[in-house]
Computed example of a mutant assay.
Amino acid sequence: MRELPKHRLHSDAPLAAGVALPLPREQANYLLNVLRLREGDTVAVFNGRDGEWLCALHAEGRKQASLEPVRQLRPQTRRPDLVYLFAPLKHARLDYMAQKAVEMGAGVLQPVITRYTQVSRLNLDRLAANAREAAEQCGILALPEIRPEQPLEAALAGLEPERLLVFCDEAAASASPVAALREAPRGPLAVLIGPEGGFDEAERALVMARGLTLRLSLGPRILRADTAAVAALALVQAVLGDWQADIG
Results as ranks from 00 to 15, higher is better:
Leu214Met: 01
Leu124His: 03
Ala205Thr: 12
Arg79Tyr: 01
Arg182Asn: 08
Cys55Ile: 05
Arg186Asn: 10
Pro185Ser: 10
Ile247Trp: 13
Arg71Phe: 10
Glu201Lys: 05
Asn47Val: 06
Ser174Gly: 05
Gly61Ala: 05
Gly40Val: 09
Ala44Glu: 02
Glu103Tyr: 06
Gly219Glu: 00
Leu223Cys: 01
Glu162Trp: 02
Asp50Val: 11
Val178Leu: 14
Ala28His: 10
Asp81Gly: 12
Ala232Met: 11
His58Ile: 14
Ala131His: 01
Val236Ser: 06
Phe199Asn: 06
Leu152Lys: 01
Ala142Met: 07
Pro195Arg: 04
Asp95Cys: 00
Leu206Tyr: 03
Gly248Tyr: 08
Gly158Pro: 11
Leu35Trp: 07
Leu85Val: 00
Arg210Asn: 03
Ala179Gln: 15
Arg8Gln: 09
Ala13Tyr: 07
Leu35Ser: 03
Thr77Arg: 14
Asn123Phe: 10
Ala128Gln: 15
Gln137Glu: 04
Val19Cys: 09
Ser11Ala: 00
Ala228Pro: 09
Gln72Gly: 06
Gly61Val: 05
Leu206Phe: 03
Glu133Met: 07
Lys100Gly: 04
Glu162Ala: 12
Lys6Met: 03
Met208Ile: 00
Gly139Ala: 00
Val102Lys: 02
Thr227Ser: 15
Gly107Ser: 06
Leu181Lys: 11
Pro80Met: 13
Ala179Arg: 13
Leu141Gln: 06
Leu35Phe: 07
Phe199Ile: 05
Gly241Glu: 12
Ala172Asn: 02
Leu233His: 06
Gln150Tyr: 07
Ala180Cys: 11
Gly211Ile: 04
Gly194Phe: 08
His91Cys: 04
Gly51Glu: 01
Ser176Arg: 11
Gln27Arg: 15
Ser217Gly: 13
Gly187Val: 04
Lys6Ser: 10
Trp53Leu: 12
Ala173Lys: 15
Ala106Met: 02
Asp246Ile: 00
Ala157Thr: 11
Ala134Arg: 08
Val83Ser: 10
Ile140His: 12
Asp12Thr: 14
Leu67Tyr: 05
Ala134Leu: 02
Gly40His: 11
Gln27Lys: 15
Ala157Trp: 01
Leu57Trp: 04
Leu9Ser: 06
Ile146Val: 15
Ala205Phe: 03
Leu233Ala: 04
Arg147Pro: 01
Pro161Cys: 11
Tyr96Arg: 15
Glu145Ser: 09
Asp12Phe: 02
Val34Asn: 01
Arg78Phe: 00
Val239Thr: 14
Pro177Ala: 03
Leu82Phe: 00
Leu37Gly: 07
